[in-house]
Amino acid sequence: MSEAAGTIEAEKSRDIRKRWLLSLPALLIILVAASGPLLIVLVYSFLTPGPYGDVQWLPSLEGWINVVLEKDIFDGTFSLADAHVSIFVRSVMLSLVTTVLTLLVGFPTAYFIATRPEKTRELWLLLITIPFWTNLLIRTFAILEVIRNEGLINGLLLKFGLIARPIQMLFTDGAILTGMVYVYLPLMVLPLYASMEKLDFRLVEAGYDLYATPFKVLRKIIIPLVKPGIIAGSILVFIPALGAYVTPSILGGGKNLMLGNLIELQFGQGRNWPLGSALSITLMLIVMVALLAYVRNAGSQGSRHG
């Protein structure tokens, strides 16, 4: 009896060993290719900046301290790094607003596609993904051409005599949001569509049969059922939006830094690589918190339905 159990145990551990050995190449790649560069960033964040860029191999916490604390250059007092905090807050706010707007635009779009006959759905999906075939820079410059002072919209409005002089649309917050929503819309529509496709429309009919108003059906039936899609879409939009800087700087005129620009500044003209590394890791931590929130949410979602 005990001998049989021992054999089974041995067999099991051999099996586990074999699995580990077989997955070793994959693990190595993950370790070297994914964690390696991150480790360099982490190590650099604890070093001293070199005089003209690069780092000196002297351990220092300056980089991390500078992320949140700032020594006033004029009176030498320490205070909360107001500039960094403002830039973080701006980036997070911009990403949140972008996420909400893409959801508002993407939800009806995905619903429209999901309710088409099965044959035409693929065509609609194709139309949604077409912008993805074009480089991000080119899409952003295309928007710039539409909204600039001598662009398409102002040109038409002037031609029809609706305005006397061009409306300043380029280099405004509205321009940034338009660009961001346009760029990230497919990332919202696709996961939303994936969960709406699985939606059982008989439930919607049942809701109407029981005299629910359209709004009630949306709130009590559709939204709870496609919630995983909403969450996945929001995460997919929020994370890249947080690091985005091409779109804000081209359409916003680069007057206000985004997180991405702030990090780039430290590696370029600012010549403070440790601070840049520390800021990069801070950005990653924010993303990780957002992802953890998602995983926990999705987890509780599953258990409730299970």
């Binding site: 403002s86 007057k255 500044l265 003209q269 600012g270 010549r271």
Partner: peptide
């Protein structure tokens, strides 16, 4: 010099915050 560069960077970041 690096110490002046550091002051410049701080002013620059504050300008664009």
């Amino acid at each position: 010099p690096p110490e002046v560069q550091e002051l410049y960077t701080k002013i620059w970041t504050e300008l664009q915050k």
